[in-house]
Nucleic acid binder design. Sequence first.
DNA 1: CGTTGTCTTGACTTGTCTCAAGGTGCGTGG
DNA 2: CCACGCACCTTGAGACAAGTCAAGACAACG
Lengths: 244, 244
Amino acid sequence: MEAGESPVIRRFSRIFTLTDDERRWLEAVAGPHRTSSPRRDIIQQGRPIPFVAVVQDGWLFRYKRREDGRRQILSFVLPGDLVGLHRRVVPVGGHALQSITPTRLATMSDTQISALAAEQPRLADAMFRLSALELAMMHEHALRLGRMSARERVAHLLLELWTRLRCTGECTSTRFFFPLTQEMLADALGLSVMHIHRMLRDLQNEELISFEDRRLTLRDTEALAELAEFDPTYLGLRRNFALE
Amino acid sequence: MEAGESPVIRRFSRIFTLTDDERRWLEAVAGPHRTSSPRRDIIQQGRPIPFVAVVQDGWLFRYKRREDGRRQILSFVLPGDLVGLHRRVVPVGGHALQSITPTRLATMSDTQISALAAEQPRLADAMFRLSALELAMMHEHALRLGRMSARERVAHLLLELWTRLRCTGECTSTRFFFPLTQEMLADALGLSVMHIHRMLRDLQNEELISFEDRRLTLRDTEALAELAEFDPTYLGLRRNFALE
DNA sequence: CGTTGTCTTGACTTGTCTCAAGGTGCGTGG
DNA sequence: CCACGCACCTTGAGACAAGTCAAGACAACG
């Protein structure tokens, strides 16, 4: 794993060893880049999906909004993730995609996507695996929302984000850049902002986590993992990956 | 649409007109059938996924269990749905699959699945569409769990099930066989059994729904849809499908 | 004819929400 | 450079939705 590689390549390298051909193909796919400033809707709910892309840099989230304005964040999107994959088969997107930080997306043409299965079957498999992972994360999200306490939900989500960042090499210690506001955490976890605040305060008081200028430190990952029954198997990782 | 057709064929016919060749292919795929009695774990959490199959008959659900025994139902699986699709790319399943009623599954061999993209690109697209739909339903489920009241969640889920049954012709009126227990509804919607019971009683008292021996009648689908802000667009259907 | 699973009801508890008010930091424009 | 506004974080007190506990009724089934 080299420095300066794109996050997709780092990601796929984790699944299997890429051939030079595959590596070239992946680099070539990265077509025109689209950049976006924070807090922009990149894809809108109920509108056609404009493109397929790989996140090169930045954090985003998918969300749905209710008529009264309340919103539910469905998932967070990190470097190395794919967006707009279903463009070919669904006329309009059922949810919106918003940037949190400044972002850089590498778009892919429709022809490249359709040629993938025939030309690069192993890469097609890897993409299929990524979409399976996306579904698995939604399953875990449902478990969080339906059957975890507020405290557990917060700890579980923090561990998931940390684990995903480590997968693509975005993070190598227990301290990392954390751009989410309390409002975003609330809308992701089905709670009110005030209650999120209380839970974060409690976790800080118990010295399980700490914040210093937009950076989060997980001070006791084992205790957090036990608290939230966090098991990274669903992310396609060994059970003890979280504790290393 | 003819009587006696398999639910997959009915389902795909809704997406596009099948050629005779595609129709034959679909019928041929239906390999060895597996039947199961009610309340059996057909796929177990943390175990390899044993096969890919299409549900020919019966209701099932996917679920996860926590260490203390509490469970979260992730989704309900109805005739025409696919199960085990990710077998090829994930070593073990992250959730279990349990039958609710007696079920009949038509298994598909791995070679048939892998040959699909090359031999029947339109069918491969249709399957891709089905998996996109599965993700869309999880997104809506997250909205239900995170940002809907108990009352809204119940109404919304009942409408979703009804709509899905109508898609495959399993149901043609507002009255249909409903095998879910209150405990299953509770575990799907992140609520307690007692509270589900209260909500069902209220909806019955207001004459929005009614039960008679394992059959559910939606007495006022418009009122229910408004109550729950139900919009079947996410199921790949016209906005007013729910009210027809 | 008991056993078991499911539904039903009521009373009480609690986790989470809502409302209200104040604090802090930061970017922007005068 | 300062003053302002805005977004975000913080705190407390009361309200309410949903959970828990307890106890029966009923049907299905062996």
